[in-house]
Simulated scan of single mutants.
Amino acid sequence: MKAIRKVLGALLVVCLWPGCLQASDLSTLFQANEASVVTIRAGSKIGTGFYVAPHFIVTNLHVVRGSRSITYYSNYADGGTAAPSVVAVDAANDLVILLAAKPGKPVRLGDYDSVSPGAELFAIGSPQGYEKTITNGMLSQKRKDGRMQISIAVSPGSSGSPVFTMQGEVVGVVVAQRADSQNLNFAIPSDRVQRLLQKAGETAQADYVTVADSELSRDAAPSGGVSGSVDVDFAGVDTSLPGCRNYASRIYENSAGSLIKLCTCNDAIMLTNRLCQCQPCRR
């Protein structure tokens, strides 16, 4: 009997260890939310999206821009479903809401302002196309440009992933990563999603635009035969530096299949196949 008590006591100690409890919490939270997350394929690009209403899916604009057809997958095994229409677009925050042909379970949108640096977070997405991948980290900082800096591991394909609190509420959308760093990544705060969702709710269904006829299918790309935004580049950039404003760098594919960057540096716009020469924003 004493031996049994010792074993039970040891198990209790192990399961009261914070890491054990967190692992259990993450597993429960994943099971509660993974059905809300979808993989998105738009031409040759892949990303992540999630339901914010039964027939609305939000993702990053750069994931779907330049594509005349968009397919989303709740699970690869069940096959894909075409997203018929674009409901609302927020180009400034790289967000778009798509009409979902099949209803899904919406996430719970949380209050971004209530989350402080150091808060534990996790994301569910499709890095490199590996669907339903969960990764965790923390809110590293709230940057002056309005973005969330997060330590959650992300990869190409993670764009559009929901960023959850440990209460199961979405407070951000993965948008970019620093290619020259490890776990130095960024997300768009959920208040931007809430504003776009409100706009979508105020849009009559008759005003939805089919994907093939939408502006995003034509891609507002720079001139010179460049089209098809494929990535966002923030290598070597700190947008919180004094004097840095309106910084943006988007990588495009040209007709020859090579890459070119459209850079915005304060009030200047430039095309380059090298690093964006934006000294006020470079560390």
Rank of each mutant, 00 (worst) to 15 (best):
M1R: 09
K2I: 13
A3V: 10
A10G: 11
L12G: 07
L12E: 13
L12S: 12
V13K: 08
C15Q: 13
G19R: 09
C20N: 13
L21V: 15
Q22M: 15
S24W: 15
D25Y: 12
L26M: 12
S27I: 13
L29T: 09
L29V: 07
F30T: 11
F30V: 11
N33C: 05
E34Q: 13
A35E: 14
V37R: 03
V38R: 01
T39A: 12
R41Y: 10
G43I: 03
G43T: 00
S44P: 12
I46N: 06
T48V: 05
Y51Q: 07
V52K: 01
H55C: 00
I57M: 06
L61D: 00
V63M: 03
V64H: 01
V64C: 00
R65T: 13
R68Q: 13
S69C: 04
I70T: 00
A83P: 04
P84T: 02
V87R: 03
V87M: 05
V87D: 03
A88I: 05
V89C: 00
A91M: 05
A91E: 12
A92P: 02
L95R: 02
L95H: 01
L95P: 00
I97P: 02
L98C: 02
P103N: 10
P106C: 03
V107R: 03
R108S: 14
Y112A: 14
Y112H: 10
S114N: 11
S116M: 13
S116K: 14
E120Y: 06
P127Y: 07
E131G: 11
E131L: 13
T133I: 05
T133H: 05
T133L: 02
N136P: 00
M138T: 14
M138H: 11
M138V: 15
L139N: 04
K142N: 10
K144Y: 08
D145K: 00
S151Y: 03
S151M: 06
I152N: 09
I152K: 07
A153W: 00
S155E: 15
P156M: 05
P156F: 03
S158T: 09
S159C: 09
G160V: 12
S161Q: 11
V163K: 08
V163C: 06
Q167N: 15
G168S: 08
G168A: 05
V171D: 11
D180I: 09
S181L: 15
L184E: 15
A187Y: 08
A187K: 06
S190E: 14
D191H: 15
L197Y: 07
K199D: 14
K199W: 09
A200R: 06
E202G: 06
T203N: 00
Q205W: 06
A206H: 07
V211K: 02
A212G: 03
D213M: 11
E215K: 14
R218L: 09
R218F: 12
A221Q: 02
S223R: 13
V226R: 06
G228L: 01
D233E: 02
V237F: 01
V237G: 05
T239S: 01
S240V: 04
R245Q: 08
R245Y: 03
N246S: 06
S249R: 01
I251V: 14
E253G: 04
E253M: 12
G257Q: 01
L259P: 03
C263S: 01
C265V: 05
N266E: 07
A268W: 00
I269A: 09
I269M: 06
N273T: 14
R274T: 13
L275E: 13
L275K: 05
C278Y: 02
Q279D: 12
